[in-house]
Design a protein around this nucleic acid. Structure first.
Lengths: 167, 167
DNA sequence: ATGAAATATTTAGAAATGGTAATAATTGCA
DNA sequence: TGCAATTATTACCATTTCTAAATATTTCAT
C-alpha cells in the first residue's frame, strides 16, 4: 500500500465526511418528515425504477421485513407506487409516484442551492478544477460501474409509465 | 446565484453522496456494535472536547433527552467521560476516554485503508491533484473555519487532560 | 438578598423503528 | 406431482427516539 494513496484516502475521508454533514443539514431543512432510511429508499427507487423490495432493503441496509413496513409508509403517503409483478407474482414492483419524484427533486434542489451558497465565494477556476478532480474519482464509488449485482427482475414491466398491467 | 456555481454544487453533491456510501460501508465494517448516531456522537465529541449535551444533540440531529440516554450508553461502555462543569454546574462536560479515542482512531484507520484499497489502482498524478482539490474545498465545510457558533462554555476545564477538578 | 425567568439536563411514558422467526404465495426443478 | 427455493408479509419483541414534565442551577431585576 502506497503512502501517497493512504494520504489521499485520509484527505478524501475527511472532506467527504465534512461535506456530508453540510449536505445533511441542507437535507434536513428540505426533507420535512422524512427519515434518513426513507430518504435513501426513495433515492434508490428513483435510480432503480421497478426494483424489488429485498434488493432495496439490502442497499439501504435494512432487513426485508423492516423495508416492507417502511414502504408501507411511503406508499400510504403516495410517494411510491407498489404493485405486483405480472410475470412473477411473488415480486413487488416499486416506482416513485410523480409526487415522490417531485419531492426528491425539490429536496435535492434545496441541497444544491445550499451547497452553491457555500461555494459561491470561491474563485470559479478553482471550483472548476476541484470538481473535475472529484469527478474523476467518481467511478470509484458509482455502483453502476463498480458492481453489477443489481437484480433487473421483471424487465417487462420495469417502468410502466402509463399503464398498470397489474390489476 | 451563478449557473456555473450551481452546476458545481450539483456535481459535488453527487460525488459526496456516492463517496459517503462507500465510507459508510467501510465504517460499518470497523465500528462493531456502534450505531450511526453513537458513532457520530463520538466523532463530534472528539472534535469538540468539553462540549455540552445539547449542542452535541443538535449537531447529531437528536433531542437532548435522547442524547442524554445515548451518552448514558457510551459512558457505561467507558467511551466518553461525562462530568459536571465546575463553573456552571448545570452543564455537563463531555470528553472521549482514551478507549473512546482509540476506538475512533481504529475505525477511522480501517475506513482509510478501505478507501485506499479502492484508490490504489489510480494513477499517482490524479491522486495528487485530487488531494489538492480536496484540501482546497475543505475549508468550505470545516466548522472550525466557517462557523463560530460553537459554545465554548467552560473554557477553564475544557479539556482537563490530567486532572479532574470535578470530584 | 430574594424571587422570577432562563438554561441545561434528566426522568417518564408513548410512539416509531428495526430485528428475528413464522407464514403465505409463487416458481422451478426433480 | 411434489419439494426446495425465492419473495414478500405478518407477528412479536427489543431498542431508539420523541414529547412533556420535573429538577437543578444560574442570571437578572428588583
Amino acid at each position: 500500500m502506497d503512502q501517497q494513496t493512504q494520504q489521499c484516502a485520509r484527505e478524501l475521508l475527511e472532506v467527504v465526511v465534512l461535506a456530508m454533514q453540510a449536505v445533511r443539514v441542507e437535507m434536513r431543512r428540505g426533507a420535512r418528515g422524512l427519515t434518513v432510511p426513507q430518504f435513501r429508499s426513495l433515492a434508490f427507487i428513483g435510480h432503480h425504477p421497478g426494483c424489488g423490495l429485498c434488493s432495496l432493503a439490502e442497499h439501504v441496509g435494512l432487513t426485508c421485513p423492516s423495508m416492507s413496513r417502511l414502504v408501507d409508509g411511503l406508499a400510504a403517503r403516495s410517494l411510491v407506487d407498489r404493485k405486483a409483478c405480472t410475470k412473477d407474482r411473488r415480486r413487488v414492483i416499486l416506482n416513485l409516484t410523480p409526487q415522490g419524484r417531485e419531492l426528491m427533486l425539490s429536496v435535492k434542489n434545496e441541497a444544491v442551492m445550499g451547497l452553491a451558497g457555500r461555494l459561491s465565494p470561491f474563485p470559479p477556476e478553482e471550483l472548476k478544477s476541484a470538481v473535475q478532480a472529484l469527478s474523476r474519482l467518481r467511478p470509484l464509488f458509482d455502483p453502476a460501474q463498480g458492481e453489477r449485482e443489481l437484480t433487473p427482475a421483471c424487465p417487462a414491466d420495469q417502468k410502466s409509465p402509463n399503464l398498470k398491467p397489474a390489476d
